[in-house]
Amino acid sequence: MTFVVRAAREADLAHLYEMAKLTGGGFTNLPADRPALKAKLDRSHAAFAREGGELGDELFVLILENLETGEVRGTCQLFTQVGQRHPFYSYRLSTLTQHSEKLGRTFRAEMLSLTTDLEGSSEVGGLFLHPGERAGGLGMLLARSRYLFIRMHRARFADRILAELRGIIDEAGGSPFWDGLAGRFFGMNFQDADQYNATHGNQFIADLMPKHPIYTAMLSETARAAIGLPHPSGRAAMRMLENEGFAFENYVDIFDGGPTMTARTDNVRSVRDARTAPIVAIDNEGGAQALVAHGSLADFRCALGTARDVADAVVIDPLSARAIGVQEDGVITYTTRA
């Protein structure tokens, strides 16, 4: 089967809603709420329609489509500059070392401090792949297509980029981290707070969250154990981010304690190593497995295929050429799959 990543359309709302219901909660960027998803699509449409090259506060929603059946099987998102509409809060995990001469002991206390350090960064998020498609490299296609999109529209993105990974969620849909910390101040459970954030923003965090540092020793053991750990389903995503050059720099999500991964945008492997070249031929004579992309903004399309360098040009396979809608002499941006 042939899959392509393309710009989301208004008609994709029903597909996004069905996928959102499969997330199991804790997925702020893909809430199971039709009006919130419709607002995302409207915002994405405006971003794709704007042709200016400068950095702004925008959202791009991409869709994974099975070209043979027309089914939508996944989605991902790119935020060009977080923290412009609402503050972008994170907890920063730090250590305070204190020494007592009289006791002859040194104490090291871990603390969580509320911060907006990452405000102004770009963000890759909202990645969801249908459970029936979690094989064959489609997760990698969805994830890395975002970096090719950034490479092809570099001026629209910031110099720093982040990715938030969902934290530990228990079988009942609750968050040990939320229950041990923020839940004590808000009078609402994790599911309600997460849903409210997804649909109304997180200003309520600024209104009610204590601003002084929280000593982790004061938290429950289950809450402490969840700090900086991804949900089991997100471990593969964390490895992919690390392979791209992202690192965990002690920032965690204020809701579920999941890790926030960061990188310099130009150092992200798929952004840095991608090539742009004209197609000199289209054939089945082999080449390296690659992600190939073509088209600007709403015409962007990305697929898995093969690419073979020939001087300053490239040869790709017919299947991927059809998927991304390109012919000989067309220009593509591509990166190897390895």
Rank of each mutant, 00 (worst) to 15 (best):
V5R: 01
V5P: 01
E10T: 13
A11M: 10
D12G: 06
Y17W: 09
Y17V: 09
G25T: 03
A32D: 15
P35S: 05
L41S: 06
D42H: 11
R43T: 11
S44P: 03
H45D: 10
F48R: 03
F48A: 03
R50Y: 15
L55K: 06
L55P: 03
G56Y: 06
E58C: 10
L59V: 08
L59F: 04
L62D: 02
I63V: 14
Q81L: 12
R85T: 14
R85H: 14
F88T: 10
S90N: 15
S90K: 04
S94G: 12
T97P: 02
T97Y: 06
F107T: 14
M111E: 12
G120L: 12
G125V: 06
F128Y: 09
H130I: 01
R134E: 05
A135S: 15
A135Y: 14
G137F: 08
L138I: 01
Y147H: 13
Y147M: 11
F149N: 00
R151G: 03
H153N: 15
H153S: 10
R156V: 04
F157V: 05
A158L: 13
I169F: 00
E171W: 07
G173V: 13
A182C: 13
F186C: 03
Q195V: 05
G201E: 10
F204E: 04
L208S: 08
L208W: 09
H212M: 13
I214A: 12
L219F: 05
H231Q: 01
R235F: 07
R235Q: 12
A236D: 11
M240Y: 03
E249F: 07
E249I: 08
V252M: 02
G258M: 01
G258D: 02
P259W: 02
T265K: 04
T276N: 04
T276S: 14
A281V: 11
I282R: 06
G286K: 05
A293F: 11
A293V: 10
A293Y: 07
H294A: 14
L297Y: 09
G305A: 11
A311S: 15
Q327M: 06
G330S: 09
Y334I: 03
T336N: 08
